[in-house]
Structures are given as structure tokens and as C-alpha cells.
Design a binder for these strands. Structure first.
Lengths: 213, 213
DNA sequence: TAACATAAGTTAGAAATGCTCACTTTGACA
DNA sequence: TGTCAAAGTGAGCATTTCTAACTTATGTTA
């Protein structure tokens, strides 16, 4: 019988053997599966991801995930939520040391948004590309709103508004739309042509100035 | 033995029986499959679409599509290309009768973009959401560039530039990014909350003014 | 008009996937 | 130490994509 690393390896063993379990129980399979999923989504793309692959990578049977997740979409949702948390942390870190009320902070938020979209395109598309349509996980919605909240605050500060009013919301919405679209387009561009490099800092700065003036 | 409408109907027959074939040969199965695919992509979402479903809807066996398309991605690509052609036609139609060199034309282009994204979200996501990543169909790329070309022309006219130079490209790129992101966001919003309606005309007008001034 | 090459269908089936069910192992705690 | 629930396993069903070998219809050419 011998479960210990019984090989249906051979396929994955060479490329990336990681997070294999030790005995019958894994320790933290939930976390391992999330990490495996994240990795595979980036590697093969959100639409080619399969639960089976994640199982192979984590070294467990294909029935194991269903002790931790209801189904495949729930696994993907977990990965997205984790990604949003990471994104928000990155954003807050990027803001440290930049003077409040300046365009520099707005630009930093935008750059971090682009960074995330280009560094983790799989997750970004998973969240915004239309895969998780029917999933209306409250955690997901909330984490998105929190991140938007960061922008709202900064825009209010830039405009000298004491509170987040309709005008602040309107301008923030415009900035978000712009950077959001830019994220998709730059990734697509990067895949097809490689030409016409754009100076992102200058671009973001210019747009911030035009929208916040 | 009896091919004539042998029933594996019963499932789809009631809901939407259409484009069923007459004899052994279909007539134009390729077109029928594209239409069935388009319909299903909108109905079930790009990720839940299955070739089998399209076959059922078209009333043919599951092997039939492979006489017309290499594989599933190629079917989806065909649908996207068809969608882009339709989108471009809509855009050109929307421009008719609006005076050249005015912001109104830029706004019309943006509105048509949003219209398409919201009226045919399945196809829009199929094209831009990250499903057709690896497909680098030249037709697809070209049709996208043509549509962007329309915007470039209008922006040049608005700026009073005699030709499409770097500055024209830069401004057009900004406008496209904005509307592109807006398309994604509005669709997502429409799914989750329903609140906070925005005046799209005013928004587009404001942004056009700020970016093109 | 008959023959026939070929395009365009069909059925059958292999391999992979998502998920369920009944079973087994293990660790934690009374 | 004994027991129970949590967390694994293997087998298997339904569905999917795609291929292979076969059949039917069609249009061209002799």
C-alpha cells in the first residue's frame, strides 16, 4: 500500500515538487491548496486551471479538496481574496513616507495597481475578467471596497475636501476606471506586440493632474 | 436508422429550438454554430460555455463542429471576431451626422463602447477578460486596431492635428483606457450592488474635456 | 446520365475533469 | 485508554473535449 510519496509523480515531480504531505494528514492542506491553485492559475491561466492539477501539486487525492472547499469556484474565490489582501497591503506599504495630500500618493496607488495586475495577471483576471461572476462572496466585495476606500481618502485629501462627498467619489471613480482599463490593456499589449513602450510614471502623473485639477 | 430529429431533444427542445437542420447536411452549420456559441456565451457566461451545448442547440452531433473549427478556442475566437466587426459597425453608425472635430464624436465612440460591453458582456469578456490569451489570431488583432484607429482619427481632429502623432496616440490611449476600465467596472457593479447610478453622458463629457484640453 | 471524389455529417470511444459516496486513518480529548 | 470527528483515500458516475472510422449527400466531369 505505501502511501508515502507513491508516485503519480513523474509528471510534476521534476518541475515543482513542493508542499508534499508527510503522513496521512497534511497539516494544513487548505493553505497548501490555495498556494497550489495560485501558482497554477498564474502558470496556465485562469481558464485552464484544474482541481486535479492542484491536487497533484499538493500531493493529495482528487477528493481531498472537497473537505475544505465546496467546489472549484470556492477554491478560486479563496485565492482571489488572498490576492486582494496582498494587494491592499502592498498599496498601504507603497504610501508610507509620501506626504499626504500630494499627487504623488495618488500616483503611487495607481502604480501599485498596475504592478499587481502585471505581476499577478492570473489572479487579476480571475477577479475582474468575468470568471467569478456568479460568486458574490461578501468577503470579496468588502476587500474590494476597502481598497477603493484608500483611494477615496487620498482624493479627498488632494482636493482639500474634509469628507468623502459625491465629487470625491466621482473623481476617484474616474481614476480607478482609467487605471483599471490600463491594467487590462497593458497586459494584453505585452502579450501581442511588444512595441511602443509608454512612460507609466509620466502618464499617471498627467492623468492625475487633469482629473484632480 | 432514423436520424430525423431523433430525440436527445427534450432538454433544449422546449426552451429554444432553433436552427435545426433539415437533412443530413445542415446548409450552413458553421454560421449556426457561431450563433449558438454567441448565444450560449451570453447566457451561461464565457467560462461555462461548452461545445456540447452548442451542438445540442444547433441540433447536430458533438463531433460535427470539428469539421469547421480546429477546437473550442477557435470557435470562441470566431465569435469574438464577429462581435468586433459588429462593434465597429455600430461605432461608425453612431458617428453619422455628428460634426467632425467635436467632443460629441468622442463621446459617441465611448458610449458605443460601453453599450457593447454592457449589451454583450459575454463576448466583451471573452475578448478582453483573459480567455483568449494564447490565441493570437491576426484577424482579431487587426479588428481591434481598426477600431482604435477610429478613435485616433477623431482625437486628431479634436486636437486640430493634421496627422496622427505621438501626442494624439497618447491622449487616445488615455481615453481608451478610461472607457475600457469603466466598461468592466460598470458591469461588475451592475451584478453586485445596484445603487449609485452615474450619469454616463456627463461623465464621458467631463473626461473628454479634461483629457483633450 | 452515371460514376465518383470529397465535403460534411454520424456513432463509438478514449482520456480528463468535477464531484459524491462509502470507507479508513489519525489526532485530540474525555 | 477508548472514542469520535476531522481529514484523508479509492472507486465510480456524468460530463466534457477531441479523434477515428464510417456514411451520406452533392456537384463535377466523362
Amino acid at each position: 500500500m505505501m502511501t508515502e510519496q507513491k508516485n503519480e509523480s513523474g509528471l510534476l515531480a521534476e518541475s515543482q515538487q513542493q508542499m508534499v504531505k508527510k503522513g496521512y494528514h497534511h497539516g494544513d492542506l487548505r493553505a497548501a491548496l490555495i498556494e497550489a491553485t495560485r501558482q497554477l492559475v498564474e502558470e496556465k491561466g485562469p481558464d485552464s486551471f484544474s482541481v486535479s492539477d492542484a491536487c497533484r501539486l499538493a500531493g493529495v487525492s482528487t477528493a481531498a479538496p472537497y473537505k475544505h472547499f465546496k467546489d472549484k469556484p470556492e477554491m478560486l474565490t479563496a485565492v482571489v481574496i488572498e490576492g486582494m489582501v496582498r494587494h491592499r497591503a502592498n498599496t498601504l506599504a507603497a504610501l508610507e513616507g509620501i506626504e499626504r495630500g500630494t499627487h504623488a500618493r495618488i500616483i503611487a496607488i495607481g502604480k501599485e495597481y498596475l504592478n499587481f495586475a502585471l505581476r499577478e495577471p492570473g489572479i487579476f483576471r480571475l477577479k475582474f475578467g468575468g470568471f467569478t461572476d456568479r460568486i458574490v462572496d461578501p468577503h470579496l466585495k468588502e476587500s474590494g471596497e476597502q481598497t477603493f476606500g484608500v483611494l477615496l481618502n487620498e482624493v479627498a485629501a488632494c482636493l482639500g475636501e474634509p469628507e468623502i462627498n459625491d465629487e470625491v467619489r466621482r473623481r476617484s471613480f474616474i481614476l480607478w476606471s482609467f487605471v483599471h482599463g490600463l491594467s487590462f490593456i497593458l497586459y494584453d499589449k505585452q502579450l501581442s506586440d511588444m512595441g511602443g513602450h509608454v512612460d507609466l510614471d509620466a502618464l499617471l502623473g498627467d492623468v492625475a493632474k487633469r482629473i484632480l485639477s
